[in-house]
């Protein structure tokens, strides 16, 4: 059931300048599976956003290759990419005077014609996306009247309306209060189960990620990327070593299958 949808081979991410190349992370080898929620964790500056930008084809890889659904990312045209990958970004869109429904409708752009008019099928998909995220009451609201959490759900619904097998989210839980964080993470995990989509997100909410994600990527400047289920990473000491290099020690307890992290007091 778990299909590998994304294959990353000896990938180095970074920026190409005029005569120099700044490498942010090097030699990443990994697969991301469909029907799973994968969380990317790491300190600020570890290269999480750069990796996500590279995977979303906003940034060309410095080295190596990314294969999505059996095709190299470079071989996708703009239009095909829009039907393969949906993104939810950290940047807050400064939209006014647009209803939630219209915004989600823009997610249908890769499928609509010259004028961008929605047909019955598109409206149906928008309605389904709204239902999946559970924001029916917000339908008619204007974007500027929404809270941060509601707005994030709208952007997720936009990505769902886009009907892509892959969704990348850059820190979708940042700026949210705790219940909203939990809600968004659970929503995303449930979506991988019901739709079989591949969802990959970066986050700073370590404990939440350990409890909800299927697979965790720990990203670090020195050690590169470590990948495993939360239990594996806790068991083989990766989690501990990941923290200890920052001079902080934690106790990780496995409480009935879900991991708890307790900072060690001196």
């Amino acid at each position: 059931m778990k299909q590998p949808t994304i294959k990353i081979e000896s990938l180095s991410t970074g920026y190409r300048g005029k005569n120099n190349v700044t490498i942010v992370a090097r030699d990443i080898n990994a697969t991301i599976h469909g029907g799973e929620l994968t969380c990317l964790l790491g300190p600020n500056g570890a290269g999480k956003s750069t990796l996500l930008r590279t995977l979303s084809a906003f940034l060309p890889p410095v080295e190596g290759s990314i294969t999505i659904m059996g095709r190299n990312l470079n071989d996708y045209s703009d239009k095909e990419l829009a039907k393969a990958i949906g993104v939810v970004l950290t940047e807050k869109t400064d939209l006014r005077n647009m209803s939630v429904e219209d915004l989600i409708g823009l997610g249908r752009s890769p499928y609509t014609g010259f004028w961008g008019n929605l047909h019955d099928e598109d409206r149906q998909k928008v309605a389904e996306a709204i239902e999946m995220v559970g924001i029916e009451p917000l339908r008619e609201r204007m974007i500027q009247t929404l809270s941060d959490g509601e707005r994030q759900k709208v952007m997720i619904a936009k990505a769902l309306a886009q009907e892509t097998p892959v969704i990348f989210l850059d820190e979708p839980t940042a700026f949210l209060d705790f219940p909203s964080k939990v809600e968004i993470m659970q929503l995303l995990r449930d979506l991988t189960r019901t739709t079989g989509k591949t969802i990959f997100l970066s986050t700073h909410d370590l404990e939440l990620a350990l409890q909800i994600a299927d697979t965790i990527w720990l990203m670090d400047k020195q050690k590169g990327v470590m990948i495993g289920t939360p239990q594996e990473l806790a068991g083989n000491g990766s989690l501990n070593s990941f923290f200890s290099q920052r001079g902080i020690s934690f106790d990780i307890h496995d409480v009935e299958g879900s991991l708890c992290i307790i900072p060690r007091t001196k």
Binding site: I85, V87, T93, L95, L103, L106
Partner: peptide
């Protein structure tokens, strides 16, 4: 019109939508 509507979302979202 379609181009402008997409640009409303910001460069990156617009790019992601093709």
């Amino acid at each position: 019109v379609k181009t402008l509507n997409l640009l409303l979302l910001g460069d990156q979202y617009a790019r992601n939508l093709g």
